[in-house]
């Protein structure tokens, strides 16, 4: 963990070398997610409620997913851009160092510009938490935190699968973005909005609903099942198959050039 801090420091130093670029990218990230937010806002002012959820509740859901995604992207960026790590030979370097390779990929890249998105998520929380009319007990707060933690886990798992596929294709598969970026976009609204089929897919195949829809039901008192509150923890289990795929991938690694 201390070593991770050291890596973070050196990467922060690197990114700070290009201050203007850093600030502009952060602002850009803020604005792009802000437009998504505006989309929801206008939609909801027209219709008042989507599938029974009020604007504030949807915003809460939006903020939780956005926060999980931006945190995951900030710290797991190494997996997201793994195809470049493979093609420029950086992975060779990682393998000749006496540390765990997942840790090193994790620590090799951090995207601090995602702070723009994170800030957006915090802003929406600041509005939605008091406005949602939820009575914030200890349980509810814990649920919200679990939603974010579970979300980070699932997005991170997707990044790892995405990276592991690079071992076989060398190039990244854009198809995977349906599940990562797409997951974020879908996640703006409670997943039940999209119908039964999609909800089932995001429950059993890729567990987005486990950290988004079901805990939200508990949060908004639509269900009082404690199970729904704890489902984000189950979503973390998604990491296990992801890591297995990764291990298989490493064994297939064949390096590039010279």
């Amino acid at each position: 963990m201390r070593l991770y801090g050291k890596y973070m420091l050196i990467l922060l130093k690197c990114q700070m070398q290009y201050k203007t670029s850093f600030i502009l990218t952060a602002i850009g990230q803020f604005l792009s997610s802000f437009s998504a937010f505006l989309g929801i806002y206008f939609m909801m002012t027209r219709f008042n409620a989507v599938n029974g959820f009020t604007l504030e509740e949807v915003m809460l859901c939006f903020a939780a997913v956005l926060m999980a995604f931006s945190l995951a992207e900030c710290f797991f960026r190494g997996f997201d851009t793994f195809s470049t790590i493979i093609s420029n030979g950086e992975f060779d370097r990682i393998l000749v160092r006496p540390r765990n390779e997942i840790f090193q990929v994790l620590a090799s890249k951090m995207e601090f510009t995602r702070i723009g998105r994170l800030f957006q998520a915090v802003l929406v929380f600041c509005y939605a938490i008091p406005a949602s009319g939820i009575h914030w007990t200890f349980d509810k707060i814990a649920t919200l935190i679990l939603m974010i933690v579970g979300g980070i886990g699932v997005f991170c798992g997707l990044f790892i699968i995405y990276a592991a596929l690079c071992f076989f294709t060398t190039e990244g598969l854009e198809v995977m973005n349906i599940l990562t970026d797409g997951g974020r976009e879908f996640g703006k609204y409670p997943l039940s909005v999209y119908g039964k089929g999609i909800l089932k897919f995001f429950t059993y195949a890729v567990p987005h609903a486990l950290f988004q829809y079901y805990p939200l039901l508990y949060l908004t008192d639509r269900s009082d099942s404690k199970l729904y509150m704890l489902l984000p923890l189950l979503a973390l289990g998604f990491l296990i198959p992801c890591l297995i795929i990764w291990k298989i991938g490493v064994r297939h690694y064949r390096s590039t050039g010279s």
């Binding site: 130093k13 690197c14 070398q17 420029n88 060779d92 370097r93 393998l95 000749v96 006496p98 010279s258």
Partner: peptide, 18 residues
């Protein structure tokens, strides 16, 4: 890995900007 050193002439292992 702890007991070997590797230099790839065409690739850098130093952090570029620091």
């Amino acid at each position: 890995a702890a007991s070997i050193g590797v230099v790839f002439g065409q690739r850098s292992q130093l952090w570029w900007d620091v």
